[in-house]
Amino acid sequence: MSSAALRPVMGAPEISRALSRIAHELLERNHGPEGLLLLGIPRRGAPLARRLGERLVAVEPALAGVDPSALTGSLDVTMHRDDLRRHPARAPWPTQVPPGGVDDRVVVLVDDVLSTGRTVRAALDALSDLGRPRAVRLAVLVDRGHRELPIRADHVGKNLPTSSRERVRVLLEETDGSDAVVIEAPEGGEGP
């Protein structure tokens, strides 16, 4: 998008600090690491879930020596989306759940941006096909508003009020080569 103005809102240090805080919040809210399972929604939720898992292991003594991959996975929602018919068919992403499954775990859905809430709704459907978690929570790096469904996040890295004409893009080391959150505003659009 050459005609779009890019405005950075978070850099690598801010993203790192937000994830560290969310990791602590998860442990606090859950009264420890008991039963926690972090499932990232591909694409960019998956590496975020992995990073959160690494932080949990790093800060929680009860998890010392645990392989972070035993706490994390990914959950594809492509085939559960309500806008499936509005786009050409897209290839599903992998769903990976550690051995033991989701039954009776506290599943934390992890995504990069929360906006309409439709992805999260699809994720709840996809999750119920895998089993019956004890509880489901939602952690997102950015909440940009514009909700269309009664869904809210339990843990938010940064609240980012945006105009509906703007796009929020999260870039991550694993998928894009570097960490950043930027707002793309169409040329001549609103915004500072």
Binding site: D76, M79, P92, D129, L130
Partner: peptide
């Protein structure tokens, strides 16, 4: 990806 979903307990997808 479809083959991976067929390893699950619930094999049905809503697509």
């Amino acid at each position: 990806q479809m083959a991976a979903t067929q390893q699950r307990e619930i094999k049905k997808l809503p697509a």
